[in-house]
């Protein structure tokens, strides 16, 4: 899909937004505004931005837990994402899911999932639902190299191929499954070759090249849309930070990380494409920086100003359809007369 000048600049702006957002998240984590697990996307930005720019805005998206980049690239307001990291009621899931479970079903982002490989069958099922309802939409399922060793990976690929479903499995191969190097965790180093076990079409792409990712996903999306079935795309990349903010990252050498930073997806795209083709001036670039920083600062201010979820909403939405007699404790039923609250809660 040929992109015009504005679209090409937008790719850079999105990557910069993700990186700035992630750096700010790390800062807020250090200030204890954010807790738990925080998996940052620095270094991998070209994949989310390249892939989502190749899809329709209503194509279905299902990802792993390193999901902030996908949320931002899908156009979810950065204020709501930051508020979710803070655990506030204005967050994308009202403070229920946190960093690993950002979602906006309205924007066809069905969520980040935090059990490695657990979301792959869900993506296959979502693809079936779209075929069942004849929507023409396809599914992008994002996973990491570490999840290509678990049973659900093969179970999902087999099923998708068997039923010929419109799903693209996008493997972000950042060479490390948490703190275990790919040579230690996988018998196959070139991950895309694993698709051959299911006779699934697969390709490998430079995950640091946003245009290469864009082109590859365009091609695979076209395949899926025209009824040629599922595919797997391996995007080779590297994450600059540890697995999560809890990772001291002693297992990776400084040399390896610094070498990877020599091929930075943002710098390469800015230098080799935007500036080289005179699509952007230095002033415009600096303007984008200012806008992005202002947006992220505003996201933090918004999160800081947002309230925590109200305690009386704790039992809400455990069930979509509460049953007769169901009481607030959400577990065993007590007769209404014995409960001092106000009756049925969903």
């Amino acid at each position: 899909m040929e992109m015009n000048k504005d679209e090409l600049i937008s790719l850079y702006r999105q990557m910069l937004l993700i990186r700035t957002f992630e750096d700010k998240s790390a800062e807020m984590y250090a200030k204890a505004k954010i807790a738990g697990f925080l998996h940052l996307y620095n270094g991998q930005e070209a994949i989310a931005v390249g892939a989502l720019s190749a899809l329709h805005s209503d194509d279905e998206l299902v990802t792993h837990y390193r999901d902030h980049g996908y949320a931002l690239a899908r156009g979810i307001d950065s204020r709501f994402v930051m508020a979710e990291l803070y655990g506030r009621e204005t967050g994308t899931t009202g403070g229920r899911g946190g960093s690993m479970h950002i979602a906006s079903v309205e924007k066809h982002f069905w969520g980040g999932y935090a059990i490695v490989g657990g979301h792959l069958p869900l993506a296959v099922g979502l693809a079936y639902a779209n075929v069942h309802h004849n929507t023409g939409r396809i599914v992008l399922c994002v996973l990491g190299d570490g999840s290509t060793n678990i049973g659900t990976f093969h179970a999902a690929l087999n099923w998708a191929q068997l039923w010929h479903l419109p799903v693209i499995f996008l493997v972000e191969n950042n060479m490390w499954a948490m703190g275990t190097a790919i040579s230690i965790h996988s018998s196959v180093i070139e991950i895309y070759k694993k698709a051959a076990a299911h006779e699934m079409y697969a390709e490998r792409v430079d995950g640091k090249d946003v245009l290469a990712v864009h082109d590859a996903v365009c091609k695979l999306a076209e395949r899926a849309r025209s009824g040629e079935g599922p595919s797997l795309l391996e995007a080779v990349t590297y994450r600059y930070r540890g697995h999560s903010m809890a990772d001291s990252d002693v297992q990776r050498s400084k040399e390896e990380i610094n070498e990877q930073k020599q091929r930075d997806p943002l710098t390469m795209y800015l230098t080799n494409v935007l500036l080289k083709r005179n699509l952007l001036t230095d002033e415009q670039e600096s303007q984008i920086h200012h806008e992005v920083e202002a947006e992220v600062d505003e996201a933090v201010a918004f999160a800081d100003a947002s309230a925590e979820p109200a305690l009386d909403t704790l039992y809400d939405k455990i069930y979509a359809q509460p049953v007769a007699n169901m009481q607030i404790d959400g577990s065993l039923i007590r007769p209404a007369a014995l409960y001092t609250g106000n009756g049925t809660h969903g």
């Binding site: 299902v62 069905w110 657990g118 069958p121 869900l122 099922g125 079936y128 049973g151 179970a155 087999n158």
Partner: peptide, 20 residues
């Protein structure tokens, strides 16, 4: 379906999410 219970349930969940 294949003998793959994690997929039978998981694919079912995905389909249910999508309105099946």
């Amino acid at each position: 379906t294949p003998i793959a219970e994690e997929a039978i349930v998981g694919v079912g969940i995905g389909a249910a999410m999508g309105g099946v």
